[in-house]
Design a protein around this nucleic acid. Sequence first.
DNA 1: TAAAAAAGTTAGCTATGACTAACAAGATAA
DNA 2: TTATCTTGTTAGTCATAGCTAACTTTTTTA
Lengths: 228, 228
Amino acid sequence: MTNKINLNNLTKSEEDYLKALFQLLIEDDSVKVGNNQLAEYLKVSPASTNNMIKKLKAKDYVISEKYGKLDLTEEGKAIAVRLIRKHRLWETFLYNYLNFTWDEVHDVAEQLEHIKSQKLIDELDRFMDFPKNDPHGEIIPNADGEYFILPRITLSSLSEGDVCQLVAVDDGSVNFLKYVSKIGLVLSSEIKILEIREFDKSIRIQFDNTVETVTRKFADNVFVKKVV
Amino acid sequence: MTNKINLNNLTKSEEDYLKALFQLLIEDDSVKVGNNQLAEYLKVSPASTNNMIKKLKAKDYVISEKYGKLDLTEEGKAIAVRLIRKHRLWETFLYNYLNFTWDEVHDVAEQLEHIKSQKLIDELDRFMDFPKNDPHGEIIPNADGEYFILPRITLSSLSEGDVCQLVAVDDGSVNFLKYVSKIGLVLSSEIKILEIREFDKSIRIQFDNTVETVTRKFADNVFVKKVV
DNA sequence: TAAAAAAGTTAGCTATGACTAACAAGATAA
DNA sequence: TTATCTTGTTAGTCATAGCTAACTTTTTTA
């Protein structure tokens, strides 16, 4: 086996930074990620980030030049993907078996993803019969660390008259998720763009028998597949 | 509700010390527990223990006089029991649903017991239909924090000719548990004491169609219910 | 292109929770 | 009862991972 992954004994913090950097890097493929941006994402000071990046560079998980942008090594990426796999499998478990709601799963999964046991996560996967998506619609990386990234279309990028289907929502904010549930949107909902208001970019949408007006910020966090 | 428990935001370390002290206190009801004893149990230096005990005294979880023995307050005990409940529920989950063996569950449960979510543990309990015992036969404290301690009889305390039934085993050592499994002992096995050798206190036992000789140390970790 | 703003870095501080070494208090034994 | 051993305590160090304040480099813009 060439692909043997060493079960790097990383601290919770190190794991958090690697995962955060990975999320920022794939979020905006072309745009480079800087130190302060990572700091803001993790809600820590730029000094803390700078410090940790040094450490992760020494361990060969991160690449960057002084005063330059950040990138992950292959091993750094592999660690991040394993964390995302763990996070999403736990979310699925909490949602499907332990009566957690959409907006409750994230915080607990953030803790559970740091539990160190290969067997635990492989068996959890098997127990749930190898689920493909988490409760927010996100794809769960498989045991080989393959991470399929679908080209993402946000609701905000569509035009008047377009029809789409909800495939995933960002799980970063509890309030956002509560709001999505409250207005009645669920995964696979078919959504029609009725009107985009130039003034504030708010969007009138229709789904099922509901008409709602949502903000641009809301629409940025809703991922869809175009139907018409 | 007078019995409202505040979800004390304790660190992993603080939790570990409270649980360890609780285990030592109930292990030997009459014998007082000292600082160095706790240090040895936790495999840290006496200085570290002394330090942490100071902190836990300030938080009103531990009672002790300077140069005196250690005890837990009611709140300290309640925290320890909640940790034991979490530990044993997770062990049960790993064993019954995720194909973990007797000797594999402990280490992972040590991590999982520190996850902070009341809903998680209550729902896990419900999901498994409120199990009474963990895989090692130990009683799982219920959601009200009631901790039933059965008077414990060790295999080593019996006499020649006695017949007993295996009710629990100590889960502290992987090697011990592997050995128990290997010779074929399981919970509820009926064991007969054939002979106790004065020389080294080793014990010849019979169960099913097996005759084995076990050491005194082994027998100290096997808990039984006397039948004859 | 020079000044201002933004981004990145460094130094030095804090808390937690380990550690060792040295010392003090109690318990035990000669 | 005194000497010795065991137990408990304190002081001071280290690593991790946060912080602020001050500084440097890069980028932007006037």
